[in-house]
Amino acid sequence: MPDVPAPRVSLPAADLARTVVFAAFIAVLGIFPGIYLGGSGVPIVIQNAGPLLAGAILGARRGTASVVLLLALVAIGLPLLSGGRGGLAPFVGPSGGFLFGWIASALVTGLIVQRAERPGLPVLLMATTAGLAVDYAIGIPFLGAYTGDLGAAAVQSLVFLPGDAGKVVAAAVIAAVVHRALPGTLARPAVHGE
């Protein structure tokens, strides 16, 4: 916000609502079937774009909180990951590192976006790219620990790179439009008081 006059403290309730609703948003990205990307006829899972969007739209603090909340609910057994997966298994499976990486993803994306006065497409692209990179940086070694071979893990992960690159671009474009549609979303205290 350009010139916020009096010191306004946003109520905890507004923060809480954003965090909760965005955790639900990421869950719905996974639950909701048949989102078609580009011209392909195959519905693809776009849930892993959720943490990037969380950071890019809500900023580091609330974005990260919403990802942590979502993963906590998954861990206690709610089937909120794509394909109705839930419980502890996804975390200990070979791609568990990519899940933990979501937290860092939202954090890094949010931190970069927050630095910009008015987040435009270039900054958002940089932020979501960095967000995906840290996800890989955590996910690949985890996979490597599983297979005992980091190099092979990296090679295997390359399969997902084209799709994920598409999601990085899509998340940045979408976040740019949302920021124009709702200016001040990163900082706006939705509710005033105290």
Partner: peptide
């Protein structure tokens, strides 16, 4: 905006 001021959801400038 005026109504929200009654319970402090918006504070007057």
């Amino acid at each position: 905006t005026l109504a929200r001021m009654i319970n402090g959801l918006v504070l007057p400038d």
